[in-house]
């Protein structure tokens, strides 16, 4: 059918240069961009990894939706509809609105939740893993106070954790609200005066990971960076006992 050929030519016209652009962008990203020290696209922990997969999936699916809608629009603006009776318009309306306005978002939401709810569940610090290491982090203007209550170790802007296992960060704030975030490991969580929040953090490999304050916290908000150093289990025990002795 003629209309079909037009549709395909429009789709081809739309996608040809753009696929190239996307592929190029992805290429650039993989070579240079994705590997930043704060990059959520270069995950190094289970939570960040799961979310990065969510992102790539959503990008693909929603990218298609986006191009399809723009393509439809361009086609609708260019084509000659001929004489459309009111009854035809009514049928078309119901088909499009029910399909595009109800079914499309409905299915998208269902799929999103099917993937998203288990991922979210996995990121929760459940009390079932009670024997995990507890680290207390308190926000000050403008630094993070880090305490290991069991070992009696106290640090500033510097965390040490064992690699390959979860730790619980207990977040508090001494003054204003801020947000504790190590992008390559896990999502962020706020430190709020009067409240305590618990964040589950895990690094798969030993290494140094950088973190920052994500919630605006005043004058030196940009300078509230910190590091998380993950050690192999034995090295971590060693570090902890050394640090406890020095204190």
């Amino acid at each position: 059918m003629f209309a079909h050929r037009r549709l395909w030519s429009a789709v081809a016209w739309l996608t040809r240069p753009r696929v190239a652009v996307l592929a190029g962008l992805a290429h650039v990203c993989l070579l240079t961009g994705c590997a930043g020290e704060y990059s959520t696209l270069d995950p190094a922990g289970p939570s960040a990894l799961a979310v990065s997969w969510l992102w790539w999936g959503m990008l693909l699916a929603f990218g298609l939706v986006w191009f399809a809608v723009i393509g439809l629009w361009l086609l609708a603006v260019r084509r000659d509809p001929g004489d459309v009776s009111d009854a035809q318009a009514q049928r078309l309306q119901n088909r499009w609105i029910i399909g595009g306005g109800l079914v499309l978002p409905g299915v998208s939401i269902a799929v999103l939740l099917a993937f998203g709810i288990p991922v979210g569940h996995g990121m929760l610090p459940l009390s079932a893993d009670e024997d995990v290491l507890r680290i207390e982090v308190t926000g000050y203007q403008w630094y993070w106070q880090v305490e290991y209550p069991d070992a009696g170790v106290s640090l500033e802007d510097e965390l040490h954790i064992p690699a390959g296992e979860p730790v619980h960060i207990h977040l508090r704030s001494n003054d204003v609200i801020r947000s504790f975030w190590v992008p390559r490991l896990a999502g962020k969580l706020d430190a709020i005066p009067g409240h305590e929040n618990v964040l589950k953090l895990q690094a798969d490999q030993a290494g140094v990971y950088r973190g920052l304050c994500a919630e605006f916290c005043g004058l030196l908000h940009a300078d509230m960076g910190f590091t998380v150093e993950a050690h192999e289990r034995e090295d971590f025990e060693q570090w902890l006992s050394d640090a406890a002795r020095d204190d």
Partner: peptide, 12 residues
């Protein structure tokens, strides 16, 4: 609106 994704990119 997807909560786990929001935890990563919120405030960025």
């Amino acid at each position: 609106a997807l909560v786990p994704f929001n935890w990563q990119v919120h405030d960025t």
